[in-house]
Amino acid sequence: MTPRDTADTNSDGPWSDLDRPPLNAPALRRGLVREGGLWTGVELVRATGSTNSDLVGLAAAGKAAEGTVLVAEEQTAGRGRLDRRWTAPPRSGLFFSVLLRPAKVPVDRWGWLPLLTGVAVATGLSRAAGVDTALKWPNDLLVTVGGEERKAGGILAERAGDDGVVIGVGVNVSLRAEELPVPQAGSLALAGAVSTDRDPLLRAVLRSLEEWYGRWRSAEGDAGVCGLQETYVAGCATLGRVVRAELPGDRSVVGEAVAVDGDGRLVIVNEAGVREAVGAGDIVHLRSA
């Protein structure tokens, strides 16, 4: 993979859909990369299989520093949790990955990073797009379209060696109704965004991520001390719902989601009143409690 700025103008190039102009890599670098800041480099590619896979590979080869941001105009093999495919038309969303190395944070607190990213993305989109984004535990971004809850984005965290984590984010920005991959999907445009200009959206999200990551890291990963746990709980659409947690080993738990604990786990109480903290699994929202 050779990252390069998108500047072509052929019929299949970035200007072929004028409603979806290309990202401006130099402007993004000027706005995000600064002395003493988290972001050390912003690379933009026309298309790639998966920004997460690419950045994990660069980190393993010693070719990426903490704060590297890899953005793609199109992902042809984007992945979500459980290796689900994530596809969208070129330049219709934000598809990017970042490399973090939280050296001073105990590894057992790194599980907060996907939740932290969810808070940062929701905050950034609220500011820049004017769209309220709720969080479905552990890593989905929800918007309201026509009174219905729809998934508009997702987050995927992967280890990169012993000291790094690559976090990938995918957000549907300008997808039209006929372009949605499944009926349950949504986009910022369909949710009534005041802006679908991806440059300011990406800058807002990355600045928000830098702010939250800095707070969390300064607190040595204590989500309570830095306010992350409280903020996540306030924006989590899963809490107060009856859910089904599909867990590893073909086991499932049905009950009310009542809390997110200090380790970022979802606490579920079943009909018998038994509490179980779920650290990994697929969550299905069934109904309000």
Rank of each mutant, 00 (worst) to 15 (best):
D8N: 10
D8V: 08
W15M: 05
W15N: 02
S16C: 13
L18R: 11
R20Y: 00
P22S: 08
A25M: 07
A27N: 03
A27K: 04
L28H: 08
R30P: 01
R30T: 12
V33N: 02
G37Y: 14
G41M: 08
V42M: 06
A47I: 05
G49Q: 07
G49L: 05
S53R: 11
A59P: 11
K63F: 14
K63I: 08
E66Q: 15
E66N: 09
E66P: 15
V71T: 05
Q75F: 15
G78R: 00
R84V: 14
A88G: 05
P90S: 13
R91H: 15
S92Y: 06
G93S: 01
L94E: 12
F95N: 02
F96L: 13
L99S: 03
L100M: 11
P102R: 10
W110C: 01
G111F: 10
L113E: 09
T117I: 08
V119R: 00
A122I: 00
A122E: 02
L125R: 00
A129Q: 03
A129R: 04
G130T: 00
G130P: 14
V131Q: 01
V131P: 00
T133H: 00
D140L: 14
G146D: 14
G146E: 12
K151A: 08
K151W: 08
G153F: 01
A160T: 04
G161W: 10
D162M: 01
G164V: 03
G164F: 03
G168D: 06
G170P: 09
V171F: 14
V171P: 01
N172Q: 12
V173T: 07
R176L: 10
E178P: 02
P181F: 03
G186T: 05
S187C: 03
L190H: 02
A191F: 01
A191N: 02
A193D: 04
V194D: 03
T196E: 06
R198H: 15
P200A: 07
R203W: 11
R203K: 13
V205P: 02
L206W: 14
S208L: 10
L209M: 15
W212D: 15
R217T: 15
S218V: 13
G221A: 09
G221H: 07
V225A: 14
C226N: 07
G227W: 06
L228I: 13
Y232F: 15
C236D: 02
G240T: 12
G240K: 03
V242K: 02
A245Q: 10
P248Q: 06
D250S: 12
D250M: 01
S252F: 12
V260N: 05
G264A: 06
L266F: 10
L266E: 08
I268K: 02
V269Y: 04
A272V: 12
A272L: 10
G273P: 08
R275Y: 15
V278H: 10
I283T: 11
I283M: 12
L286E: 12
L286D: 04
R287G: 11
S288V: 05
A289N: 03
